[in-house]
């Protein structure tokens, strides 16, 4: 049998399960969302084609601006925070601790990632309560005024950010930690011989060597932050008003609470395009700051 032919067969056979599922459950639905956004769909009766009217509604939807504003705000706030805090923690744990202390710190920072999001979000909602929550009690102890964590459009972002950093920092932390461990020690030794200060070592060696990891972490964080759902759902239900309502929440609400599947699809499509654009931008920019040398 021709080798090329048998290779082709083998190749496709191995990817068949994944490919089939991908086409049916990911690509198909993507096309489905596209089609739905151009129609008026009903689960129990007939549907019809409505062209661009869902998109006209999207642009004239007064809430859309606030909702996208919130989502993008979360992206621009949460992503840098996760990167910085994750990096700082990783560098500190890697550089300052050893042995069982290191194990303890790794566990402390990584465990929240595993914890059931729904559960801890419920608990944090209680902690953030303006009048009776744990956090405001501590704030009261040091004499400051209670903060309306979940009741003010400004503080809501802070509350979500705090929760997000506590729950998910483990992800970037662990990637950075491993990235740090894989930087060859010789590079540092050579630098120290040359008389480089800790700061110089950090900025000239650590950061560049970590940049591939950082790129990977940033891309994932952006995709995650853009579709953020669990955190606002449990902590704030999108409130007060619409101040913490993200696109993810709005899609759910529109499609699965008001049964407006078509409009929901139009919104979902817009989200996809935004994520696509931002990710492509990231890939284009990576040439500028990611260092792949040895």
């Amino acid at each position: 049998m021709n080798k090329k032919f048998s290779d082709a067969i083998a190749g496709y056979l191995f990817i068949l399960p994944v490919l089939l599922l991908f086409i049916v459950l990911t690509l198909g639905p993507l096309v489905g969302t596209l089609l739905l956004s151009f129609s008026k769909f009903s689960l129990l009766s007939s549907s019809r084609w409505v062209g661009l009217s869902n998109f006209f509604n999207l642009f004239s939807d007064a809430r859309m601006g606030v909702i996208y504003g919130n989502t993008l705000f979360f992206v621009f706030i949460l992503v840098p925070l996760h990167v910085i805090v994750g990096l700082v923690l990783a560098v500190s744990v890697e550089g300052l601790t050893k042995g069982s202390a290191k194990y303890l710190f790794r566990t402390t920072f990584f465990f929240p990632v595993l914890a059931t999001t729904a559960s801890v979000a419920i608990a944090w909602g209680m902690m953030f309560d303006t009048s009776f929550g744990l956090i405001n009690w501590f704030i009261g102890l040091i004499g400051a005024k209670a903060i309306p964590w979940l009741n003010s459009p400004v503080w809501v972002y802070v509350a979500v950010a705090i929760f997000s950093l506590w729950k998910f920092i483990g992800n970037s932390f662990i990637y950075f930690l491993v990235g740090l461990q894989s930087i060859p020690v010789e590079l540092y030794e050579a630098a120290m011989l040359d008389g480089a200060s800790p700061r110089q070592r950090f900025f000239r060696i650590t950061l560049p060597m970590l940049s591939p990891t950082m790129f990977f972490v940033v891309v994932n964080l952006i995709i995650g932050a853009a579709q953020i759902f669990d955190e606002p759902y449990f902590l704030t239900a999108g409130g007060p008003g619409d101040s913490s309502r993200t696109v993810g929440l709005y899609i759910y609400e529109t499609a699965f609470q008001y049964h407006n599947y078509s409009y929901g699809s139009a919104v979902a499509l817009s989200l996809f395009l935004v994520i696509l654009l931002v990710t492509l931008l990231q890939f284009k920019l990576q040439k500028k700051w990611v260092f792949y040398g040895n």
Binding site: S152, P153, G239, G241, Q257
Partner: peptide, 20 residues
């Protein structure tokens, strides 16, 4: 009703959070 109640919730929560 679900949509009406949701509009109600949004605006009253804004009022009770002193935003509107």
């Amino acid at each position: 009703y679900p949509e009406v109640a949701s509009i109600f919730d949004r605006y009253t929560s804004s009022v009770y959070s002193n935003q509107l």
